[in-house]
Design a protein around this nucleic acid. Structure first.
Lengths: 192, 192
DNA sequence: CTCATTTCTAAACTTAAGTTAACGAATTAT
DNA sequence: ATAATTCGTTAACTTAAGTTTAGAAATGAG
């Protein structure tokens, strides 16, 4: 599991044994059971997450309804809005599957970044990449119909369709579960 | 105009006269006429943009139709996907109004960042902030109807409704211009 | 200033998503 | 193992967005 992390880091910066040990000594790895809520609405937090194995999701509760807006799987990083913004969270984060997650407090991040300046560079590059990708994903969402969005999902993240409940996928696609059922039926009969 | 930039930078890091002069010596400020295309689909580029005054937009051409997906106004920063991703651009960037824009090549960015390491930190914090905000905006989009999205726009970026053509706003809201017209009419008659 | 083009609105019609309700299947809790 | 809850699909109906077309208003070019 440590190796997965260091391979990921190596894509951005070179990292030596001392640095690896410094990271390992922080005990950031956590094993989290399916259904565990990592962050609640209204809560303040300084924790960032990095998924090594498994899947977590962000969701809002609007008019008593759960609205899932994002899934984070292997090698996905998530710093909640409330951390950067220093405000209570607007959303929940919970585990979709039993997962292994790296959880790092903002203080720990500061400490590593000041001790090893190249981590600052890595975080900058990573954030820039993620921002560019998020913008493109948002663009794709805006310019597609619900059916096209579902077809794109099949193409781009086929694993999600297997590992995530339909009703959570539905709000992720910006529609109601009944509509997703209908779209699936429509696509199925188009094939024949 | 320089002061606007330095005030912005000061929100993230302290900056002295030497550093200010180093930035000014790079001649990054550009005055750009309305309608100018800064980046074309298919083009490779290493330029990032920072809007000091005016408005620029990103748009795709899909089936011969322009689809505007984002507007960047005063103090907004944009590093196109093609820059981070080293691929030809999927979209166009053009000026909605006569604007004053800071355009910085990736090489210039690298140079500043290595000469003044705190700029790396600033870019990291800024990217993290923008990423968190982009995710929340995307969440809001997913969980709202077109009418709600338009009402949110009136509340959060009322200036856009004045300064941007309706048909560009429509695709920004993920709908057709005719639908936006209808939504506006619907809202207007609800008021009475 | 005038002509041409683009932009916005409107109406009629089509298509698809939202809503409400029901029911069987799957999952979870006891 | 059984009961209870949650989940996924279907159907009938409602609502709103997409499509097509048209015309008026605004904008831009010569």
């Amino acid at each position: 599991m440590e190796e997965i992390l260091f391979n990921f880091i190596s894509k951005y910066i070179s990292i030596n044994e001392d640095e690896k040990n410094a990271i390992l000594s922080l005990n950031l790895f956590h094993s989290v059971k399916k259904g565990t809520i990592l962050l609640k609405e209204g809560q303040k937090s300084r924790d960032s997450y990095f998924v090594l194995k498994g899947c977590i999701r962000t969701y809002y509760i609007i008019d008593g309804e759960e609205k899932t807006t994002a899934f984070y799987t292997e090698l996905d990083a998530l710093t909640p809005h409330c951390v950067t913004n220093h405000t209570p969270s607007d959303y929940f984060i919970s585990c979709v599957e039993d997962s292994i997650i790296l959880i790092s407090d903002a203080d720990v991040g500061m400490e590593i970044n000041s001790k090893f300046p190249k981590f600052d560079t890595m975080c900058r590059i990573l954030s820039e990449e993620l921002l560019a990708k998020e913008r493109v994903d948002f663009d794709e969402f805006k310019t597609s119909s619900p059916e096209q969005r579902y077809l794109n999902l099949i193409k781009n993240r086929p694993d999600l369709i297997q590992r995530v409940p339909q009703h959570q996928l539905a709000s992720y696609l910006g529609i109601k579960p009944q509509s997703l059922s209908r779209i699936r039926a429509r696509i199925f009969e188009k094939k024949n």
